[in-house]
Design a binder for these strands. Structure first.
Length: 276
DNA sequence: CGTTACCCCTGGAGGC
DNA sequence: TGCCTCCAGGGGTAAC
């Protein structure tokens, strides 16, 4: 479910409710997600006040008094994770694996596939954690533009879609938004990255930023519903032009959308509009 | 160093 | 109705 827009919308949805409140308890109902969930973490976290929620790529970073003796809770939603705010005492449903209990609200993590990550890091530093340190640049920050993309692709024969999705270069662009960005930029996902012109790199970088920003904006308008309702990410998702639409007509030219496998993932594109 | 294969899991869709 | 296969928005690690 979650790509960068969903993670950012979740963050924005939590901000009005959680920072400033003390954590009463952390409940782990499964022994592990991607990593083991240590009961010691729950002990160390309890009693600390949430000072803020940051985001790095698709990771949410919960600041529990990190500068004054506490630490950071790193959360990644994986493929199927979602967050909800529920009233204290609400019984957990299936796959509700983690609760962060505040006095007025419970932040509940549901993750059927358990591909999510939850890690507690003591102390003030978090960005140097092994999960975060190797991450590439943020697509919505100033550093990411056509010039950056042009430089990053020089000498690379890797297909552009796979480079876009490489979190060690650029964070936050997953399978859906890679497909939609490439469609908007009229570039084939199969195009060798190093052969893209400066102009096409500029077009693609702009498309990535537009697609992500539009999706966040669309979600932002229904943020309250998102974290308070059934938590179904995707309800606010960008309307897809090509993703998941194999065989359907391209919205621009009408030619059927094609699907190919790249790096084990499905790539959807219009063979007429999107050129190598 | 670059690229691929596999793995972690559950659930939904579709074929038979 | 059941059983089977395939697929799914991610990413870390090992192997070539």
């Amino acid at each position: 479910m979650p790509e960068l827009p969903e993670v950012e919308v979740s963050r924005q949805g939590l901000l009005p409710y959680l920072p400033g409140h003390p954590l009463q308890a952390a409940l782990f109902r499964v022994p592990k997600l991607r990593q083991p969930l240590s009961p010691i973490w729950a002990e160390e976290m309890a009693g600390h006040t949430l000072q803020g929620i940051a985001r790095r790529g698709k990771y949410l970073l919960f600041d529990f008094d990190s500068q004054t003796g506490g630490g950071w809770l790193i959360l990644h939603l994986g493929m199927s994770g979602s967050l909800r705010l529920v009233a204290p005492g609400t019984p957990p449903g299936k796959h509700d694996h983690v609760d962060l209990v505040f006095p007025h609200k419970v932040l509940r993590l549901k993750d059927p596939r358990r591909f999510g990550s939850l890690v507690w890091v003591r102390g003030p530093q978090v960005l140097d954690h092994p999960l975060l340190a190797p991450l590439g640049i943020e697509p919505l920050a100033g550093e990411f533009d056509g010039d950056w993309l042009f430089q990053a692709t020089r000498g690379r024969q890797q297909p552009i879609k796979q480079l876009l999705m490489d979190a060690h270069r650029l964070v936050g662009v997953g399978n859906i938004y890679a497909a939609e960005s490439l469609f908007r930029a009229r570039i084939s996902p199969l195009a060798p990255a190093g052969r893209l012109s400066r102009e096409r790199c500029a077009r693609l970088a702009a498309a990535v930023r537009e697609v992500l920003a539009e999706s966040i904006a669309a979600g932002g308008s229904s943020v309250r519903d998102y974290v308070h309702s059934d938590g179904g990410a995707g309800s606010f998702q960008l309307h897809c032009a090509v993703y998941g639409r194999a065989g359907e007509p391209c919205p621009v030219c009408g030619k059927p959308v094609k699907v190919v496998r790249q790096g084990g993932r499905s790539s959807f594109y219009c063979p007429r509009c999107q050129r190598p």
